[in-house]
Amino acid sequence: MSDKGYNVGYGRPPRETQFQKGQSGNPKGRPRKKGTVELDLDQVLDQRVRVQSPGGSKSMDTREAALRMQVAKALKGNIHAAKHVLKQFEKYDAITPPRSKIQTGVVIAPRASFKKPERDS
Rank of each mutant, 00 (worst) to 15 (best):
K58S: 06
K58G: 00
K58M: 05
S59T: 12
S59W: 14
S59V: 08
S59K: 12
M60F: 05
M60K: 01
D61F: 03
D61I: 01
T62V: 15
T62D: 03
T62S: 15
T62A: 15
R63T: 05
R63F: 10
E64V: 10
A66V: 13
L67C: 05
L67T: 02
L67P: 00
L67S: 03
R68H: 06
R68M: 07
R68I: 14
M69G: 12
M69P: 00
V71M: 13
V71W: 01
V71Y: 05
A72H: 11
A72R: 12
A72G: 09
A74L: 08
A74F: 04
L75Q: 15
K76R: 13
K76M: 11
K76E: 10
G77H: 03
G77E: 01
G77A: 12
N78C: 03
N78A: 10
I79D: 07
I79M: 09
I79G: 07
H80P: 01
H80N: 10
H80G: 05
A81D: 07
A81R: 00
A81T: 03
A81H: 07
A81S: 14
A82K: 00
A82R: 02
K83H: 07
H84L: 06
H84N: 09
H84W: 06
H84Q: 10
V85F: 12
V85L: 09
L86I: 06
K87L: 12
Q88A: 09
Q88E: 14
F89D: 06
F89M: 15
F89S: 09
F89W: 13
F89V: 04
E90M: 13
E90V: 11
K91D: 03
Y92T: 11
D93Q: 13
A94W: 06
A94Y: 05
A94V: 10
I95K: 08
I95R: 07
I95D: 11
I95V: 15
I95A: 07
T96S: 13
T96L: 05
P97T: 05
P97K: 08
P97H: 12
P98D: 09
P98T: 02
P98C: 03
P98M: 06
P98Q: 11
P98N: 07
R99S: 11
R99I: 00
R99T: 04
R99V: 00
R99G: 07
S100W: 01
S100H: 02
S100C: 08
S100T: 01
S100P: 04
S100L: 08
K101C: 02
I102R: 00
I102T: 01
I102Q: 00
Q103H: 12
Q103V: 11
Q103R: 13
G105N: 04
G105R: 00
G105W: 01
V106E: 10
V106G: 02
V106I: 12
V107N: 13
V107F: 15
I108H: 07
I108P: 01
I108W: 04
I108D: 06
I108T: 11
A109K: 10
A109C: 04
P110I: 01
P110S: 02
R111E: 08
R111W: 04
A112L: 14
A112N: 12
A112R: 15
S113I: 08
S113G: 01
S113P: 02
S113V: 09
S113H: 08
S113W: 05
F114D: 02
K115V: 00
K115C: 04
K115G: 05
K115D: 08
K116N: 08
K116M: 13
K116L: 15
P117K: 09
P117M: 10
